[in-house]
Amino acid sequence: MDGDLRPSGFTLTPDALGRLMPVFLSLDASCRLAEAGPTLAKLLGPAAMGKRIDEVFFLRHSPREVTRAALLRRPSLLLTLRASPHTTFKGVPVPVAGNGGVLINLSFGVGLREAVRDHGLSAADFAGTDLAIELLYLFEAKTAVMGELRRMADRLKTAKARAEIQAYTDPLTGLGNRRAMEDALARLLAAGTGFTLLHADLDFFKQVNDTMGHAAGDHVLRATAAILRNAVRAGDSVSRVGGDEFVLLIAGATSAASLVRLGRDIFGKMARPITFAGRNCPVAMSIGAAIVPAGRPIRGDTALARADVALYASKHSGRSRLTLWVSDSETRELVAGPQQRATERRQSR
């Protein structure tokens, strides 16, 4: 006001101050609690008034002796309630002219959510200009969006895993497909621990397909897949790599004797008739094998070519046989299966 020579300044009633700053704290000259804003008064209870500030709060970064000068030295304070629930406040202290006291405006800082929960606060407990409610809103919205994004990521991950399984699976038999076989082969070669590759091929499959229909052919493929799958360990790879061609990769099984046992097992099961709609589906199986010893790396297509040579030898010498590749000029027949008779029966029909 023009002409007014009184020192400039404000005079506010505690009520007006409380509306502007509902979490204010005013201390008298000896640092005792004199007034508190309505929200803070609710939190502290009437018993706290008149106590020294360091009896009510634990002050971080404060000197051992809490004095007015020490409080005012720091631009901001961190105060934690000594009583449960140990709410932490951030505060800015300013001197109060006249009574030698200190006015501290407090806020909940990063502990806002906990304070709202612990003290059951509502919008009415914050100043109309305080961004606390906006912050709570933002936090809840962010949490909801983040949860939605995480669920979306989970869905995509599941879909990706399913697509990968599909990309590696032969849908008819549930075995691996050629890509699965190539990956398994590459892994075995990279591990360098030695393995056996068997290339199996159905004989007379085309005739079953042509004379009894595709449904019968599919049934034969599924039955054959089950026989091969059950003949090896769960960790070994069995794939259908073509119409009636299968590849088995057996980790570590690198002796001819174990191959003989495996061949007898497979041929024994293949000898039992596969029936479809009450009719016998007469097929046989020829197998070529190549052993890749540990620590002697060869290319994957070389291993496949060696098994192919042995498979050709099995077919050439009358089918239902398991032949082992020995060298570029030698193969050795390990098993001659009993199904030869079934085949002969079929041919004599």
């Binding site: 971080r60 970064h61 800082g109 990063v110 502990g111 959510r113 936090f139 962010k142």
Partner: peptide
């Protein structure tokens, strides 16, 4: 340096 006191709380607000 003083704000490091609040880093854990702030990070928990952003990524609980």
């Amino acid at each position: 340096l003083y704000s490091l006191d609040e880093l854990q709380g702030r990070s928990a607000l952003a990524v609980p």
